[in-house]
């Protein structure tokens, strides 16, 4: 079985994240970028299937600027077999639909049985790329799975939405997105880090994928962006036994109680 895991290189959520206020786009050239944590969990699903069935091949795929290769290298060191980096200046500023269209072209070229992704990235938080890919490829989608079971012909799992818990399954090929409830990712070990350097990382442009982008890579246009003024700190008291009384006075003065 061939499994593809989608990877996004994103600003570290533990750092200060910036939006370019002239383009409305996330600043992706910053040094403080990492493989989105949720992707590592998606990779874990693929790797644990391979642990059980050695014939499984795991590819990691990312579309993004030059730095995305670092995220892919990390995934190779965790155990993925090969990586594809879609890198093309023309794709800068792509919206979710263009991203999904390009990824779908790469996935179709690879002929994969199962596509694994995180339920949403920590930067854009759109959470829609898996559904777009499922529709472009005409396959089933199991989104937001908290637990996943993969066999050679089928994938199943539990899916918790805002309102319901479901048990779902589908035949392969399929697109699956997983949530933070999915199993923790393994750490790269020394051997993984050493062998990662020798694993294939293919860089593909749009023309190598055999597709072109007609018109704009984004169907929406930026109108304005505004950075909200940073919040200042207010009163800070060290509790000497009266702090709770002071807080109650404050809450009452703000008409909150």
């Amino acid at each position: 079985m061939k499994i593809a895991v989608l990877v996004k290189h994103v600003p570290d959520t533990y750092g200060e994240r910036r939006l370019d206020t002239t383009t409305g786009l996330i600043d992706r050239l910053d040094d403080d970028q990492v493989a989105d944590e949720i992707n590592e969990r998606a990779l874990e699903v693929a790797l644990s299937h391979r642990d059980a069935d050695k014939s499984t091949e795991v590819i990691v795929i990312s579309m993004g600027p030059t730095g995305a290769k670092d995220a892919l290298r990390k995934c190779l060191s965790m155990g993925a077999d090969s990586a594809i980096h879609i890198l093309d200046d023309e794709l800068q500023g792509s919206d979710a639909a263009t991203t999904a269209e390009v990824l779908s072209a790469a996935l179709a070229q690879q002929g994969v049985d199962l596509i694994l992704a995180g339920n949403e990235s920590t930067d854009g938080r759109g959470g829609i790329v898996p559904a777009l890919i499922a529709e472009f490829l005409g396959v089933a989608l199991l989104s937001s799975l908290g637990s996943v079971a993969v066999t050679s012909s089928e994938v199943s799992g539990s899916r918790e939405t805002e309102f319901e818990s479901l048990r779902v399954h589908t035949a392969l090929p399929a697109v699956v997105s997983i949530t933070e409830s999915s199993a923790d990712a393994r750490f790269p070990n020394f051997k993984g880090i050493m062998t990662a350097k020798r694993k294939p990382l293919t860089v593909l442009t749009l023309s190598q994928l055999g597709i072109g982008v007609e018109g704009s890579v984004s169907k929406s246009i930026l109108v304005s962006t505004l950075e909200r003024a940073a919040r200042g700190s207010g009163t800070k008291v060290i509790d000497d036994g009266t702090a709770s009384a002071q807080l109650v006075d404050y809450l009452a003065s703000e008409r909150l109680i």
Partner: peptide, 18 residues
Amino acid sequence: RDIAGRLAARTAGGLLLD
């Protein structure tokens, strides 16, 4: 989001999310 994604891929509509 799953429904919107499928519809957008099908109709080439533009997405405005969240």
